[in-house]
Design a protein around this nucleic acid. Structure first.
Lengths: 335, 335
DNA sequence: GGCGTTGATTTTATCGCCACCCTAAGGTCG
DNA sequence: CGACCTTAGGGTGGCGATAAAATCAACGCC
């Protein structure tokens, strides 16, 4: 691999001149410029950004910690992040934590050693341990992308889970449903609790409350939606609507209903959450809540870059706005 | 950020001693070891792998070029790659090319400048331009993960598309279908052609052939499957089975059929390809071809690491074996 | 007691690049 | 004509680590 020294030698100029023409960091005569450029292409020279990073103390690399990148919701956010980071000349190290503390720890350490310029975290749930870990690395700008809380060292993007769930539940109520089951995520996750609160908010407006035995705990994956739906269908008094806390679980539920010969939405309404790309193409197309994913990704990177440029910046937090997307999996209940 | 020098000073030893205790690269007295370790944790020291990489000329980072990471198939392969790379202490720079040459060029350049140890490429189609580009970087180990052809400088993993499509078509034929439509990918892509050949292979065994007007060109995304299915349903003589060349398009097709009131599999059979996680949860669950994704990812990384360890290694190519997964979207045609 | 041996540790050179500090030459102007 | 810019470019220290070479201390041995 050619180095800057080789280029300088071939162009008949000094190392610093090469550096300056490549970085446009000071005027260089036309002739020298031409020689350098010629040498660069002749040697197929590519500057070593490892060396550069060491010198300038900046890597133009971001770390992205995510629970599970195969989940379509995460996948779409990751794409949003990657896309905007690319446009800003940054690259992305993808870290799948599988929600395992050991992996989180390992990856965080790796990212710190690789001296990423900033950290994006999307882990649905931040327990004490991981929060403490993140705090110990607070000298690196961080933004948390899906967390209801706030932080004194990281920027937080609030996904407004409570409001989103409220919109979903209110819509079901408006359609006339009064007997609504929830397929939730893991109950210990903050997001899950917020969504439950959102559902309660909507119910409270009609002086209704959420019965515990209508909450079926899932894990945000399709299989759990499928299993929960089987339980729901076996209920002596079957609900008229089911609100799944993400689209994959809604798909699992849709599938279980289909296999049981239950027609959606005629016999039972199903509502999803996130508006994943595939939600338009379920059978029937899924009524769901749009969680702006590309926007979330972009906003997160913007925030992070602002922090990278100015480390003293306030750790402001932003909120994204969920919206109801009406398709065909919800109808009025049969009288 | 503390450096090795700070650690050395605090521990009262030289920097090389610190280096040696951290890398277990030579015996160090118990006392010195203790002091160093104490200093490391007191200063919350994390070695700077940028500096390390510069010196040892190795970054323990791989670049992954992929067409579209939100496509569930790619997402699952990416996860397989990430998972195995992590277990080997490597991290991954994710590059979404969107199948745009400019992005591929940009990203390749970036990866070369960042001095990744190896390159994984999964772009479904390698036209002349990108192949030439890759060749110009052949001093870096590369493996191509989904390409029928072979290469003189990169390792290739053959995804056996032809055989997979053959299995799918043979199954449809065995079930008694004789009038089969294909929703293909872009016809100019090599993979698409291979799958078409596979279908032809199966048909040929029964002395049948594939009519051009039963090939509907899609783009491997759900929407195109949906659109194609609408065309198919409008056909004067409707086929009894549809083979979509990937699961998302099959889902789109399923959805279109559902909306048109066509029952799958009673009125029409639909077959997918890839066996994406969600294929178990479509309505009805999708009969499809399993393309071993995690295995593909792992194999690719293994191959790449072997090449990284020994650059002279032959550019062997491997083949991965697709399998039929029978679920409920295919039935015998009505007589 | 000088001398090689051994083991523990320190010194030093380098990796590739950038940023700062210089030098040299030519022009301007009081 | 000499002081002072301006423009173009060269030389070098140092970023933080590793690895080869050098040093040092302790020890046994003829």
């Amino acid at each position: 691999m050619a180095t800057i020294k080789d280029v300088a030698a071939r162009a008949g100029v000094s190392i610093s001149t090469v550096s300056h023409v490549l970085n446009h960091t000071r005027r260089v005569s036309e002739e020298a410029t031409r020689n350098v450029l010629e040498a660069v292409s002749a040697l197929n020279y590519a500057p070593n950004s490892v060396a550069r990073s060491l010198k300038v103390n900046r890597t133009r690399t971001l770390g992205l910690l995510v629970t599970a990148s195969t989940n379509p919701f995460f996948a779409e956010v990751v794409k949003g992040v990657e896309d905007y980071a690319f446009s800003q000349g940054y690259s992305l190290i993808l870290c799948n934590t599988e929600n395992q503390f050991e992996r989180q720890r390992h990856y965080l350490r790796m990212l710190m050693e690789k001296r990423v310029d900033g950290l994006l975290v999307m882990c649905t749930d931040l327990d004490e341990a991981i929060q403490e870990l993140m705090r110990s690395y607070q000298h690196v700008p961080q933004v948390v992308m899906d967390w209801g809380g706030s932080s004194d060292f990281a920027n937080v993007i609030n996904d407004n889970a409570r409001n989103g769930a409220y919109l979903a539940a209110r819509y079901l109520l408006q359609m006339g449903h009064r007997h609504i089951a929830c397929i939730s995520g893991q109950l210990h996750k903050a997001t899950t609790q917020l969504r439950l609160d959102g559902v309660r908010d909507a119910l409270a407006e009609l002086d209704l409350s959420l019965a515990d035995d209508l909450i079926f705990e899932g894990d945000y994956e399709s299989q759990s939606g499928f299993d929960a739906m089987q339980q729901i269908l076996a209920l002596p008094q079957r609900p008229t609507a089911v609100f799944a806390f993400d689209d994959p679980m809604a798909m699992g539920a849709l599938c279980a209903a289909h296999l049981a010969g239950v027609k959606v939405p005629d016999d039972l309404s199903i509502m999803g959450y996130d508006d994943t790309e595939l939600a338009r193409f379920t059978s029937p197309p899924l009524t769901t809540i749009n969680h702006p994913k590309a926007e979330l990704g972009k906003t997160a990177v913007e925030l992070l870059m602002a922090r990278i440029r100015n480390k003293e910046l306030a750790t402001e937090s932003l909120t994204v706005k969920p919206e109801l997307v009406v398709r065909q999996s919800v109808a009025a209940p049969r009288r």
